[in-house]
Nucleic acid binder design. Structure first.
Lengths: 247, 247
DNA sequence: CGGACTATTGATTTGCGTCAAAGATTGTGG
DNA sequence: CCACAATCTTTGACGCAAATCAATAGTCCG
């Protein structure tokens, strides 16, 4: 698998939000990086570790994980193909939170120096990276709302809505997508116990909102699920690509 | 009050994390902007509104507020003098969340075009702004952990720890600082009811961790409060300023 | 001095966690 | 291709942390 293929979903994601010239697109696809294969549950960035490269998710599901002193575990974000979980390590090399693969996954390590180089040489790329980081921040804010202001049913439903949109599978009516997270992982992301996630999924299933069997999420009625989740996808900023920097 | 005085805390905050040249410092202090006086509870950015300027907090306490359809209110971040609550509006002009003053406050509206101009003209400033946004993201991640993985006592204590450090008042032993938030506001930030915040503060007071009377927070023993909060301030990145861009 | 927030405290309810144990899946090695 | 272990899911019983309801005191401001 050539690196350009690994970088493809990343470029697609950037271009969903930012207009890039042909030249800039080519530069992104020619980024040098080292691929790394990960098995499920394997960590690939440790908390506090000084990094010299950022990790692009090529395939699989990854997550940012924090272990509290109280012995609890909290997932603060999920990352799928095309996501750059730690772009901020370019600015602050000491990772404040660990990263790990949830399912078997592949990441591409890209040197900070390379990212800095293409961002400063090509204003459109710099802009795209900034805009991407901004969207991540908006997602974090939504997670805060989810954890602080919604009950279990809405929390789980909201997470599934977000993932449906990010996987690009959300559509009017019914659809399904793969989300390889166990109920315990969903619990770690929503601040619920795995037992309660189970009960919650049961209710959602009985109400005809979602069905989860293994890694497969079936949404029989997108509108219904969104209502149950109080989901408003504007925060994911998947509308029109834009650009401020001169071409 | 000249604008340069309004911009001073902003520059100080940038320089706490990023090395800026004399010239760059002067450029920041000479940013043009329109001051706006706000009374308590007054909103100054509405959800969904297209902005052409970013708001710098000059004085007072402001917050990012989200109202859920379920009728709940969640604060996703606090902003004090020197903070730029919506830097991301430069990249995504449509604010996903509303901003409002919690106490009487003053903000300075700075045009996006000006921020873009100085960021692209002066690499150090661009870097400082990026690094700042990165720190905001880390703070959001900590809030997710706070809401999802800690019990009431630690949550409230953690919030007070964070604010103590951000106000620059945290110090070994005892100290105090002003944090003009009511118990209801603290509840909206920690995902608790105001009644339970009250009970929690009572326990914290009895244990000698913090005392809150009105807007004044007294910390009799900084170490004790941090332990109770499971607080680890590395995420606030208040160590050594750094710089990657050429001078 | 009165009206409107804000803080405090008690009584009661409830959503969710914890413990425990029984099925269902998945994957791996023989 | 089967068998067995490991992991994941499901369900029940019970307890607790925090919400809600309600009513009393401060406190601030016009």
């Amino acid at each position: 698998m050539p690196n350009s293929a690994r970088l493809r979903p990343f470029l697609d994601k950037l271009m969903a939000r930012t207009i890039l010239t042909e030249a800039e697109q080519a530069v992104v696809l020619s980024l040098p990086g080292t691929p790394q294969q990960l098995s499920a549950h394997e960590g690939f960035v440790q908390r506090g570790e000084a990094e010299s490269s950022a990790c692009l998710v090529v395939d699989g599901l990854c997550a940012k994980v924090v272990n509290t002193l109280g012995g609890n575990r909290q997932i603060t974000g999920f990352y799928i193909a095309g996501d750059l979980p730690n772009p901020h390590s370019v600015m602050l090399p000491n990772a404040p939170t660990a990263l790990q693969a949830i399912s078997p996954a592949q990441v591409l390590r890209i040197a900070h120096s390379e990212l800095r180089r293409i961002a400063s040489t090509h204003p459109g790329i710099g802009e795209a990276l900034s805009r991407d980081a901004t969207c991540e921040a908006d997602i974090s804010a939504e997670w805060i709302v989810n954890l602080g202001a919604r009950e279990a049913k809405s929390r789980v439903a909201h997470l599934l809505c977000e993932m449906a949109v990010r996987y690009g599978k959300a559509a009017e009516g019914s659809f399904e997508f793969e989300f390889p997270a166990t109920q315990e992982i969903i619990g770690a992301a929503t601040g619920l116990s795995s037992v309660h996630v189970n009960r919650t999924l049961k209710v959602l299933r009985e109400e005809g909102c979602v069905e989860m069997t293994g890694k497969c999420v079936r949404v029989p009625d997108w509108r219904k699920l969104q209502e149950c989740a109080e989901f408003d996808n504007t925060y994911l900023q998947m509308h029109e690509p834009m650009r401020f920097s001169p071409i």
